[in-house]
């Protein structure tokens, strides 16, 4: 076999011809992610309400809501696609997925000298 076989859910990386085309592919990616939530929860045995995972996916998309540069959007699309593939194929494991939720559960970062000192870090 000359070329390696494409793995499941592989998508050829492409430059988006226009902002509207990029927008379309972002929406497709978002749909794939949201549609995949039940399966992600099943394969990774995530003990969390489904709505929380849906909200997190939304949050990750919202973070880049204001990106207008086509090249940047393409990179984000690529990253999102690989994230999706890695999650659905269980190349990521539970801990990698839970990393998205660390900040939600962690206590607020200490501010001010004394608080930082008491928390044992600067």
């Amino acid at each position: 076999m000359s070329a390696a076989m494409a793995a499941h859910l592989s998508v050829v990386t492409a430059q988006s011809p226009s902002l509207s085309a990029a927008r379309q592919s972002v929406l497709h990616l978002y749909r794939d992610f949201q549609r995949g939530v039940p399966e992600i929860m099943r394969t990774h045995q995530i003990d969390m309400p489904m709505s929380q995972i849906r909200t997190k996916i939304r949050e990750e998309f919202e973070r880049h809501r204001d990106v207008k540069d086509l090249a940047v959007i393409d990179i984000l699309l690529f990253k999102g696609r690989s994230e999706y593939q890695e999650t659905m194929n269980a190349w990521k494991q539970e801990t990698h997925i839970m990393r998205y939720f660390i900040k939600d559960d962690a206590p607020p970062k200490p501010e001010g000298f004394l608080e930082k000192f008491l928390a044992g870090r600067d």
């Binding site: 927008r23 929406l27 497709h28 978002y30 749909r31 949201q34 549609r35 849906r54 939304r58 998309f61 919202e62």
Partner: peptide
């Protein structure tokens, strides 16, 4: 917004147990 629309369409999919192609 567009993401909400995706969610609405997906909720419709779930309600009628169909999968709507992109």
């Amino acid at each position: 917004d567009s993401l909400d629309t995706v969610e609405v369409v997906m909720a419709i999919e779930e309600e009628f147990s169909i999968e709507i192609p992109d």
